[in-house]
């Protein structure tokens, strides 16, 4: 029998992971948060989700078709971007704005910089910041969960705005903040569901604990020590409320762990996480916005290459040369 063998340089076996399998795991991890969004905000949340996912996929497909590049929608990264963007939008967002935001994320932030792996900012977050600037009103009008979204919708202050004293309103209980049912973006409502998804990613070894833990811990310590607490609540309660409300958990678990825009070194991840925590604290404490997660992560995205350059690990047996 004639045998034809493939000759190539070692190794000759491969792990089962692929880019699409990793993206699929991230999508699975986001399902609880999506479900919570739909449960608390109604079917319109599902409509926003479907719109951004479809718009992201279509933007990628059309861009690659026009520029005659290989079509890579099959890697599912555009689906992840679409879901993350929707989770960062209020349920009342006009769908056409969601479409433009999706196109911005995929075409401007991702494809124009060379596509998957080349973008230096998280596409969903960059699009969210763009939308915040372009449609400030629509982007910060939040409704009370379970209250519908039509003419009878009751607009509601987000807990963060209340914490900051920017708007009148009542704070949810910590339990509600954790389980879900507070006003805010679609994906922010349930801390528990975000945590479930994150644990899944940890278990599957898709993400590392360092960035989220350093992010949340540094933010918590700063808020506990230096937070401007005028709520009459204890400082611990105030800090916990800060962690559980707004986009901190969503950002820390799913946005600050984006592979492409975060460091690959151990030390780099710790610095990145602490940097995010510091910036989020600074914006929430001193800024004019109630929320600071998106801007913090994006700013850290931008300095990521710098962090990585200065945190190259010492190689095995390497003796630093005397300067």
């Amino acid at each position: 029998m004639e045998h034809k063998f493939v000759v190539s340089s070692s190794p000759h076996i491969k792990a089962n992971d692929s880019i699409s399998s990793i993206m699929l795991d991230v999508i699975i991890a986001l399902i609880p948060a999506c479900a919570a969004g739909v449960y608390f905000f109604g079917m319109r949340a599902a409509a926003v989700l479907l719109t951004t996912v479809a718009a992201c996929l279509l933007s990628e497909y059309v861009y690659q078709k026009i520029t005659k590049k290989p079509i890579t929608v099959g890697d599912l990264s555009a689906v992840v971007t679409g879901i993350l963007l929707a989770l960062n939008l209020p349920v009342t967002i006009p769908l056409w704005m969601a479409v433009i935001g999706s196109a911005f994320a995929i075409i401007i932030v991702k494809q124009l910089y060379g596509g998957l792996g080349k973008n230096f900012m998280n596409p969903a977050l960059a699009a969210r910041c763009f939308m915040l600037v372009a449609w400030a009103g629509n982007m910060s009008s939040f409704v009370t969960p379970f209250m519908g979204y039509g003419a009878d919708a009751v607009s509601s202050a987000t807990p963060l705005a209340v914490l900051k004293g920017m708007q009148e309103g009542t704070l949810p209980s910590l339990l509600t903040a954790f389980l879900g049912g507070k006003a805010g973006c679609i994906g922010e409502t349930s801390g528990l569901m975000l945590l479930l998804g994150f644990l899944y990613l940890l278990l599957k070894r898709i993400v590392d604990w360092k960035i989220p833990v350093c992010y949340i811990a540094s933010f918590a310590i700063l808020m506990y020590l230096f937070g401007d607490n005028q709520t009459g609540l204890s400082q611990g309660y105030f800090t916990l409320m800060h962690i559980l409300t707004g986009g901190l958990l969503l950002g820390a678990f799913f946005m600050a762990t984006d592979y492409v825009t975060t460091p690959t070194t151990s030390l780099g991840c710790i610095i990145f996480g602490i940097g995010c925590g510091l910036l989020t604290f600074a914006i929430r404490r001193f800024g004019s916005y109630p929320e600071g997660v998106s801007f913090s992560i994006i700013l850290m995205n931008v300095v990521c290459p710098l962090i990585e350059r200065y945190t190259v690990p010492k190689s095995f047996g390497e003796v630093k040369k005397n300067a």
């Binding site: 190539s8 095995f316 390497e318």
Partner: peptide, 29 residues
């Protein structure tokens, strides 16, 4: 080894997942 076990078929972009850095026994990048 069979084709499924041993032949590398795709060449996707680097998504900077960092697995190579994390697991390198020589602490290289």
């Amino acid at each position: 080894l069979s084709e499924a076990a041993s032949v590398y078929d795709s060449d996707s972009p680097c998504i900077r997942c960092g697995k190579c850095v994390k697991h390198c026994p020589m602490q290289l990048m």
